[in-house]
Design a protein around this nucleic acid. Structure first.
Length: 592
RNA sequence: GCGCCCGUAGCUCAGCUGGAUAGAGCGUCGGCCUCCGGAGCCGAAGGUCAGAGGUUCGAGUCCUCUCGGGCGCGCCA
């Protein structure tokens, strides 16, 4: 990364000038001289000189790195023009994942209740979680992806109960999770619902004993087909019933009770309950007391979250794992009483959950700090994303007001198929191309905006193949690949023949690694998605450039040396787009 | 009531953590090669960055207040 090196050199020179600061090097605007620049206004006061003079002085004192051709003072800025050959050499350098550094990052995402088919709200969770896991791995982290199966929850119990209660039998025509989901919705519309509570309770208890696991598993496997179709990856499944049986909750509470901030009030509102006083960690709360164990002895749901978080970070042990039999993920492991003991001991966790869980997630961090692990509390991240609206309206699983992911995938594939048919009738595998484009459209639409912004799922926009979309990037990739296919083998490029067109594309190519690192650091894939749009646009502009009515940048018919340079650049571009798309979990078709 | 998030072009969104003349897509209007893929490209119109104060050489970005929208605050999960 040339920018970093330049920043380093500038910092060194400034230090010698008596101002030990690190300034950020940014791209220079298109109409200004040079490729990069730094503003020097901030130093004016300390150096008691006008910024223009500082720019001049810095230029005089800065030993230019070999990749910089010239430093150019522009008002209060000092700009830099890169040597063309150095710029191109850097742009052509093959990109590889960053070196692995020790320490596991555990990403939990999906974690869908096993009682119903996935809907569009889950889509955002999966797209974000899967992308951030891939990005972190590329950025050099060892990543484990965990999918939590709440098999002792009310939702699962109600669905299993409904299936029996209504005596429904599966005819195999419908996906099983959809079938089960209909039973669940029917139960919630049943006027007898209130009266059925005791029977539902019974199912709930059976679940806690782990007795109905096969029935839950059947729904899970159907859901997993959708996760797999979305191109999401997982390493571990953890079943809540296993957590219950491993006694993680009791172990966690035992640890917490050693804190002076966890106690049992004898009187007042919380008499008889085990409560945590979060005020040392979360100041300014109206009521800083949170119940961990109710006075009837049952645990609150965030007490369970706390116990699980302790396990993730290696504070507690006790779960066992074995290979998970399924048709989609060969290496997947699942918690199971008969498995082998294993604890991930993550040094950092990312829980991908919607923003409504911000409060309980803060309690999880508070508990870590109160239990004596403030350093781990800082590494327990909540990737909070806003909810997804459906055509401007709030969704509801209970009422069946949602669009399923399967349905969206099917519709997107149908539309993509029609377009492939229209644009590329000779395509060798239209079905596969349609699948990739559909996936590109759907997943890209879920990660291109900031997680904290609410998004409205609209068919017309989410399944669009034009403009700021996944297929736009995929198309740019396919177009580049098409040129490379026609070129065959080529020889050494002549970097000195680069024109301003190659310079512009190369400059954009240089920002890839920074975009990935930024996305990893901020834990938001949208930075990478936006970069890929910019890069694809830059490439399309390059491809279409014209001068005097003639193509300005022909690749295959360019003179020797320049042709090789352009081919190498196109190859670097093509690989960068493919890598970037892969980090978003989106396939990069060679032909579409 | 307390707390968190959001408000940028008609619509959907970026804006590199305080820097250069605020940028894209959709939509509208006008263009594009006998030549590497038109899912593309070039151009035009469209802005009181919700509003008001403040800090600063400099504010879409930081602070305060106001307005509008979303969400969370239970011995429910």
């Amino acid at each position: 990364m040339l920018r970093r090196a330049l920043e380093e050199a500038i910092a060194q020179a400034l230090k010698e000038m008596g101002v030990p600061v690190r300034l950020k090097v940014a791209r220079a605007p298109k109409d200004k001289p040079g490729d990069y620049g730094v503003p020097l206004f901030a130093l004016a006061k300390e150096l008691r000189k006008p910024p223009q003079a500082i720019a001049q002085e810095l230029k005089d004192r800065l030993p230019l790195p070999e990749f910089v051709e010239e430093a150019i003072p522009v008002g209060g800025y000092l700009n830099f023009r890169l040597r063309t050959e150095a710029l191109l050499r850097e742009a052509l350098r093959p990109k590889a994942p960053f070196p692995r550094r020790p320490g596991v990052v555990l990403v939990e995402h999906t974690s869908v209740n096993p009682n119903k088919e996935l809907h569009v709200g889950h889509l955002r969770n999966i797209a974000l979680g899967d992308a951030i896991a891939r990005i972190l791995a590329y950025a050099g982290r060892e990543v484990l992806v965990l999918n939590y199966i709440d098999d002792t929850g009310r939702q699962a119990a109600e669905t299993l109960f409904a299936l029996r209660h209504y005596g429904l039998t599966w005819d195999g025509k419908e996906k099983y999770d959809h079938f089960a989901g209909r039973a669940y919705v029917r139960l919630h519309q049943d006027p007898e619902y209130e009266r059925l509570q005791p029977a539902i309770e019974e199912v709930l208890h059976a679940l806690e004993r782990g007795e109905l696991r096969e029935e839950v598993n059947r729904i899970l496997l159907a859901q997993m087909a959708t996760m797999h179709a979305l191109n999401a990856r997982y390493d571990l499944l953890v079943w809540e019933s296993d957590i219950v049986r491993a006694g993680l909750l009791q172990k966690a509470l035992a640890l917490l009770e050693q804190s002076p901030h966890v106690f049992r009030p004898r009187e007042g509102k919380y008499a008889g309950a085990l409560v945590m006083d979060a005020s040392p960690v979360i100041p300014g709360l109206e009521d800083p007391f949170f119940v961990l164990l109710r006075s009837n002895g049952t645990a609150t749901y965030y007490a369970k979250d706390i116990a699980f978080q302790f396990w993730k970070m290696g504070i507690l042990e006790g779960l066992r794992f074995r290979p998970y039999e399924n048709p989609y993920y060969p290496g997947l492991r699942t918690s199971a009483p008969e498995g082998e003991a294993y604890t991930p001991k993550a040094e950092e966790t990312i829980n991908v959950i919607d923003v409504r869980q911000s409060h309980p997630q803060a309690l999880v961090r508070a508990a870590l700090a109160l239990a004596g692990y403030p350093n781990l509390a800082e590494k327990a991240h909540h990737l909070a994303y806003e909810t997804v609206l459906l055509e401007g309206r709030q969704m509801s699983g209970r009422k069946g007001l949602a669009v399923s992911v399967d349905e969206v995938l099917e519709e997107a594939t149908r539309r993509a198929r029609a377009i492939v048919e229209e644009k590329n009738p000779d395509h060798p595998d239209k079905e596969e191309a349609a699948r990739m484009v559909a996936l590109g459209a759907i997943r890209f639409s879920m990660v291109k905006t900031e997680p904290k912004k609410q998004i409205d799922f609209r068919y017309q926009e989410a399944l669009s193949f034009e403009g700021d979309t996944g297929p736009y990037v995929q198309y740019a990739h396919a177009r580049a690949h098409s040129i490379l296919r026609k070129a065959g083998e080529w020889g050494a490029p002549d970097l000195s023949q680069a024109t301003p067109y190659e310079r512009a594309l190369a400059l954009d190519l240089l920002d890839f690694e920074e975009a990935v690192l930024d996305a990893a650091e901020e834990k938001t894939p949208h930075v990478l998605a936006q970069y890929l749009l910019d890069l694809a646009a830059s490439w399309n502009a390059y491809y279409n450039a014209r001068e005097n009515g003639q193509p300005a940048t022909p690749v295959l018919t360019a003179p020797e040396g320049l042709r090789e340079l352009r081919l190498s650049l196109v190859q670097s571009l093509q690989r960068t787009l493919a890598t970037g798309l892969d980090l978003l979990g989106i396939p990069a078709p060679e032909v579409m």
